[in-house]
Design a protein around this nucleic acid. Structure first.
Lengths: 108, 108
DNA sequence: TCTTGACTTAGAGTTCACTCTAACTTGTAT
DNA sequence: ATACAAGTTAGAGTGAACTCTAAGTCAAGA
């Protein structure tokens, strides 16, 4: 995650209240870093930024949104599971095609 | 695949020689349709258009490029395999997180 | 015949997620 | 003291893959 990307994430609202030091530079707390890592994990699982933003907004509202956040994560986990299954299916199809070409090569 | 998308694919060179009827409309042969389906499969496995285009160009050169095409497909299949493995790993991590939140809920 | 809808083109606009630029200020090493 | 690296902002630019628009032609049903 580059500095540019972090500033961009702050701009779109993924980071809410990053402290600044005397000279106006961002001063990331441990909590900020943990949150950044969590954003990265969600990103790595293919969650689009607007959904992560939704999660971030819930998170800002406090503890009483924990349920909704959980639901969001569970929904995303299921979507990811479906996506992996589809990709596995496509991979098998592709391998079939490759094997088919290999048999052709054996014959000709 | 919408009509717009097909025209776009033709424009960037994915379709090479689509016949036209008397009124200038595209007249897709069975081979064209098969090729379109193959493009779709490659797309569904996450192959970017420039790689599909590379494949299309090889395909146009004729039978003697069959080896290179196979290599391309094999390389892509391996990349897809790695991608699925990573995604599975990320999914597991996400599920761990969800389970962790669930234990918190049980306690509090 | 009239209407409706599908086709044609070149080219403009959109979305996502950055990525970079310009102009400026601040911090660090020698 | 002087470089120079790294921070700040608003806003522009990028790349992938569409997606749509405008202005026009063509075809089929009531």
């Amino acid at each position: 995650m580059t500095a540019h990307t972090i500033r961009y994430y702050e701009k779109i609202g993924l980071f809410k209240k990053i402290n600044r030091n005397d000279s106006g530079h961002r001063d990331f707390s441990l909590e900020d870093v943990t949150w950044a890592e969590f954003i990265k994990r969600l990103k790595d699982t293919g969650m689009p930024l607007d959904q992560i933003l939704e999660y971030a907004n819930l998170r800002e509202q406090g503890q009483h949104t924990a349920g909704s956040r959980m639901a969001l994560l569970e929904e995303h986990a299921m979507a990811l599971e479906r996506k992996i299954a589809t990709e596995q299916h496509n991979l098998n199809k592709l391998k079939d095609k490759i094997r088919y070409y290999e048999t052709l090569k054996d014959i000709s």
